[in-house]
Design a protein around this nucleic acid. Structure first.
Lengths: 209, 209
DNA sequence: GACTATACGGAACTAGCGTTCCGTTTGTCA
DNA sequence: TGACAAACGGAACGCTAGTTCCGTATAGTC
């Protein structure tokens, strides 16, 4: 179940409606239901097959025609963004909730575990991060930026508490976690890799550097 | 310059020649030169643009027609494999050379640095590892397996010397390095990420675990 | 120099996928 | 219940990229 980023039951993406004047007209009941179905089907499809899955597959899973998909989302990219933005925003919320925690080191590490869990379960998240690194023009960029700021806060606090070495950057940590969880391995293996990364960014090791 | 994995100047891939009987006939001089050109162009193209670069781009860079490319390599995949196999085999050779080294810990880490350097410079290598994780039927799989065994040896020695914790697996290390270097960042950032991974697999940290 | 197997070039074919178009259906409201 | 705007379905279009085909060119040989 995916919530609209903005208000509900509003034909935000319907570019085929009568221009800008109709932009805020409420959706008809069947249209609202279909929009929801499409979002759910798209999430399931992209999660399972990655962003390269064809729109037809999404439409079929949602039980609608492709035309209906395009009525709600003007391009495939727009559909993708609607999903990923939601997911990124949820992760953002998690950083804000965690930021209040008392042990900044453990706060950071448990967030990174959650981040890894999501990146490994949802192929599309990885794809989104990937795309964000390549071209910034995507609408997801705003959400990625906000998430980056959220993680940055957790990281700075952990550094201040001495739980993490000073010389790691937020982008590096994000790239490491996402990269680790990209090679579709067992969830267990992903968890272990995340732990290795966490250990890597802790304070100095016993071994000679 | 890419060497053929097997013998030289042999029409190994020319499926359009007169069947199996002609399989080992020496290539004509111009054909041998073109084959070499195609391999070089393909390496440059895939390195720069990833595996999704069209065959036309390779042909154009090589200064030949697409038909000529297909005369030498029956599919795009075959061309890709010819290149990646060569690169993987070189990395394998590196593991064997390093295996003789005296400080197993440093041996492993310097190999991982080299591995990361290659993965970050050559997008195609990443793609190859990616594909290998998904479907094993590819011919690259043999080379990936051999490389895995080579790294496994280095890792076991490093463990035996106490330079690396016992609970990391070869596949994890490989996935971490490749993953870290995938998100096309600066070379410098990649190096830093590799160092973080190296630290992560060293012995226990000073921080509480 | 002539002959032939080998190799070449690139137009044409094929397949997949994003997107559009338009005739048909349906929810909503008077 | 009838009218109409809103929404639907899916065939059709256009583009990209992999692969094939065949007429032409040429290296190698006698």
């Amino acid at each position: 179940m995916i919530a609209d980023p903005g208000s509900e039951n509003v034909a935000q993406a319907d570019t085929r409606a009568n221009g800008a004047a109709a932009a805020l007209r409420p959706l008809r009941a069947d249209a609202a239901k279909n929009r929801e179905r499409i979002l759910e089907a798209a999430e399931a499809t992209f999660t399972a097959e990655g962003v390269s899955a064809p729109i037809d597959a999404v439409a079929q899973r949602a039980g609608v025609g492709v035309g209906t998909v395009y009525r709600h989302f003007p391009t495939k990219e727009a559909l993708f963004e609607a999903i990923v933005t939601t997911r990124l925003d949820e992760l953002c919320k998690t950083t804000r909730e965690l930021a209040e925690g008392e042990a900044p080191g453990e706060v950071l590490f448990s967030f990174l575990r959650e981040f890894g869990r999501q990146a490994s379960a949802k192929q599309d998240l990885f794809d989104a991060m990937d795309a964000a690194g390549l071209d910034i023009k995507s609408t997801c960029a705003a959400s990625v930026d906000e998430l980056t700021r959220g993680i940055d806060l957790l990281l700075e606090r952990a550094k201040a508490a001495g739980a993490v070495r000073e010389d790691v950057a937020t982008g590096e940590v994000m790239a490491l976690i996402v990269g680790a969880c990209h090679s579709k391995q067992d969830d267990l293996v992903c968890q272990r890799m995340v732990e290795i990364v966490c250990d890597g960014i802790r304070g100095p090791t016993l071994a000679t550097r």
